[in-house]
C-alpha cells in the first residue's frame, strides 16, 4: 500500500451521524487525505486513536462519536483539524492532567 492510499484509509467514520473521524494509523501534518471525496491537507500530526473534524465545526457545536454526544466545541475548527481537549470540552465533568500541584486536592 503506498502512503497516499494508507492516508486515505487512515480515518474511520464510526456512525453516519458523527461529525468527527477516528485516525486508525498515525498521519503527519501536511499529508493530503481524502474525506468523502474531497482532498483535505492536514495541519496537524494526527496520532492513532485521535479525532479530526469531518466538517468545519463552530464553538458551541455538539460533537458526535458512535452517534452519541461526547462534548461541546469551545473553539471553531476547520475540516480535517484536530479535535481534542484544546477545542472540545465535556458537558459533564473536567478531565485532568499531570500537574501534581493542581491535582488531587480533595475537599
Amino acid at each position: 500500500m503506498d502512503s497516499a492510499n494508507a492516508a486515505d484509509h487512515a480515518f474511520l467514520l464510526l456512525d453516519s451521524s458523527d461529525n468527527i473521524l477516528i485516525c486508525t494509523c498515525s498521519v503527519s501534518a501536511g499529508t493530503i487525505v481524502s474525506f468523502e471525496g474531497a482532498a483535505v491537507r492536514l495541519r496537524d500530526d494526527i496520532g492513532l486513536g485521535h479525532k479530526v473534524a469531518r466538517f468545519a465545526l463552530a464553538a458551541g457545536d455538539k460533537v458526535y462519536r458512535y452517534g452519541f454526544p461526547i462534548g461541546t466545541m469551545i473553539h471553531a475548527v476547520e475540516r480535517g483539524g484536530h479535535v481534542h481537549h484544546h477545542n472540545l470540552a465535556s458537558d459533564y465533568i473536567a478531565a485532568h492532567g499531570r500537574d501534581a500541584s493542581s491535582a488531587g486536592n480533595e475537599p
Binding site: H50, P69, I70, G71, S90, H96
Partner: peptide, 18 residues
C-alpha cells in the same frame, strides 16, 4: 474535582469523560 480520566487517556486521543 474531576472524573475517572487519566492523562494517558488524553495522550491516546480521548478528549472527554463521556
Amino acid at each position: 474535582g474531576y472524573g475517572s480520566f487519566a492523562p494517558g487517556n488524553a495522550d491516546g486521543g480521548l478528549s472527554t469523560q463521556e
